[in-house]
Write a protein that binds this DNA or RNA. Structure first.
Lengths: 150, 150
DNA sequence: TTTAAAGTTGACTCAATTAATCGGATATAT
DNA sequence: ATATATCCGATTAATTGAGTCAACTTTAAA
């Protein structure tokens, strides 16, 4: 039931981009340095985020990435789902999954559905803007190394 | 963010035992057959459940396992946690984990804590008795193969 | 008392997934 | 041109998950 580094690193990177929203393209190198992530690995994560329309890229020198929408339009849920797939405790309750072949009632599936709904409820309610507000209220404005959260 | 077969199979097995609560010891072989799980693997799962005081065993011929408490006293949460460890999305918010070495505020950790709390809220509120009631109301009383829920 | 059923334990294998690393290709400001 | 980027695919190393297996202990019943 753990998030992988894909989701955790990706969320950190997106938050970093959100803090720089409106500042023009931000290079992966600078994000990787601030967040202590391998650039090579970060490249792998930013690609699906771009394909999902969450960030846009500028190629070439002085290029980089920026959010494709305002921070209040991007939820933690869409970020994590893009990188990890559905945040469902089992495949049988994931949105894109066909249902089990069992015709009769499944008492465990009901439980997994409730877990899934509750997780979605949390992550879909939090946007990057909420994270920014939280950051400005509670941190000392230290952008570097949000947390390893291994 | 998936449950492993440990939690899923273990929950099925515990539900099976709950349906037979009061009937004396139930052999692993019979549970394994009804729930379509390998006996050898199930042996691995029942051991921690016994050590956690959720089931008790009777050794020897005609032996087997039974719930150590009434079904309404055993939550889905304690079963899953016993088999999977804390249902936390990251190690840094798991109960038994020491906190990150970072002294400053972590905006992502706050999110992971909310996810964790919401998951615990769901699984700790459901007991085996709830599952039994649900089963009797909505199924056709087919004990075998609750669901593979891969 | 013998036998077979059943629990108990730990080691072991195999496959899949995760987490990166690396090399090279393309694009573009300066 | 050149330095700085994004892009893309292949490869690898490490970890975890899932299941098997063998050996041993306990105990009911013949």
């Amino acid at each position: 039931m753990k998030l992988s580094t894909r989701g955790r690193y990706g969320l950190k990177a997106m938050f970093d981009l959100a803090l720089h929203f409106g500042d023009g393209p931000i290079s992966l190198t600078s994000i990787a340095e601030r967040q202590a992530i391998s650039v090579n690995y970060l490249e792998q994560l930013i690609s699906p985020l771009r394909k999902a329309g969450l960030v846009k890229s500028v190629r070439g020198a002085q290029g980089g990435y920026m959010l494709a929408k305002a921070p209040e339009m991007i939820t933690v849920g869409i970020i994590l789902t893009t990188l990890e797939g559905p945040l469902a405790p089992t495949d049988c309750v994931a949105d894109d999954e066909e249902t089990c072949d069992h015709t009769h009632y499944c008492v465990t599936k009901v439980i997994y559905e409730k877990i899934y709904e509750s997780i979605k409820g949390v992550v879909n309610a939090i946007t990057l803007q909420h994270m920014i507000d939280d950051f400005h209220e509670n941190s000392n404005h230290i952008i570097e190394n949000i947390c390893e959260c291994k």
